[in-house]
Design a protein around this nucleic acid. Sequence first.
DNA 1: TCTGGGGTCCTAGGACCC
DNA 2: TCTGGGGTCCTAGGACCC
Length: 412
Amino acid sequence: MFALIDCNNFYASCERVFNPKLEGQPIVVLSNNDGCIIARSNEAKAYGISMGVPYFKVKKTIIDKSIIVRSSNYALYGDMSSRVMKIISEYSPSQEIYSIDESFLNLSGIKINLHLHMHNLRNKVKKCTGIPVSIGLGNTKVKAKIANKIAKKYHSFGGVFNIDDLAHNRYCKLLQSLEVSDVWGIGRKSGIKLNKSSIQTAFDFYKSDIGIIETIMGVNGARIHKEMHGYSCMEIEEVMSAKKQIVSSRSFGVDLSSYDEINEALTILARRAITKLNKENQMTESLGIFIYTNPFRKQINQKTLSKSIGLLQPTSNEEIIIPLISIMLREIYEVGHNFYKGGVFMSNLTNGLYQEDLFLEQKNIQKNAVLDSKYKKFIKFGSELGSQKWLPKSNFRSNRYTTNWNELIIAN
DNA sequence: TCTGGGGTCCTAGGACCC
DNA sequence: TCTGGGGTCCTAGGACCC
């Protein structure tokens, strides 16, 4: 038996925990650069604000309905997430942290009343962190996901719903009430393809021949089909596997056109990527950058520029990486465009600890070789002290209550 | 005027080899 | 030189997730 524990309107709920006056108020949280709506309280949903919609498109509704707006505050959400996850872990020896606000538990072998066990979990998370969660139970992950939707939708279940409590005909009925693309793993594109084969609802999918599903969707579709029939194909992944790539990118606060301004932005983004790399104890064997103009603007002269290189030795050394970023940018940069977004990426990551010992000497040789080369003139760490024009907008940010000394809540 | 960021996995097709 | 088939490896792009 699997449980999926999902925080309700997570970012909006986090904002409420630290500002109880927001309780009962409609509230939305914006993406980076205050671009899109990425979280909504139930009250905001009721006003028809949809997920992912650009802020400017719903600004009128937000003002008319006095909806409260927050810029995203990931330091706060990340910290709240780890508190929630820690409590969840007390309820089963086998936990998978699936995302910042979702966790699977494997409940097989737990002999006590699961329903009660999960209600206890829910109450404890609420009491200790202030975050409300919904819990779906099922004998596969896909079914637990569906159950979670029901737990969220119908308050009469008290936030916990076990889909395997349903008789078969009730289960079928439930599936009939869901669009096929509401099922976990079936997205918009596959939904359209399935619709063309007269598969509209989750129930149509369920009763379709698995061979047809596999033809349309490949092995993923077949796996989802099996899981809906109660055959578990997806295990709990307790250990977080090492990252395979790292991307650090941002929409700029204002469009950038000069080399120096873009270099400043990419330098900081590269530092963020290096920080992630170090946190993971990894090194990278390849490095890339990209910049592009605003794809939403109806201009003929759209530009997407990118470059990536392989490194002779894996590295996590900023003295190697940052100059290379500037060099690559120099190679792709073109005058006369308004760049809207840019980023740095690393792939072919290898275990840093192991490589460190093995290649220390070579690394230093390589580092010196790079620095002594014609590229040396490009080294400019001072680039980070530029105008900061590129910094994303964040006009509605709440305080970082839990992670920043200057913004702690001081109890009287 | 104003449109997020960071991941994973699968697949098709090309290059290459025997 | 022509012709055939099968296998591996790599990469780019697509689809999905939150």
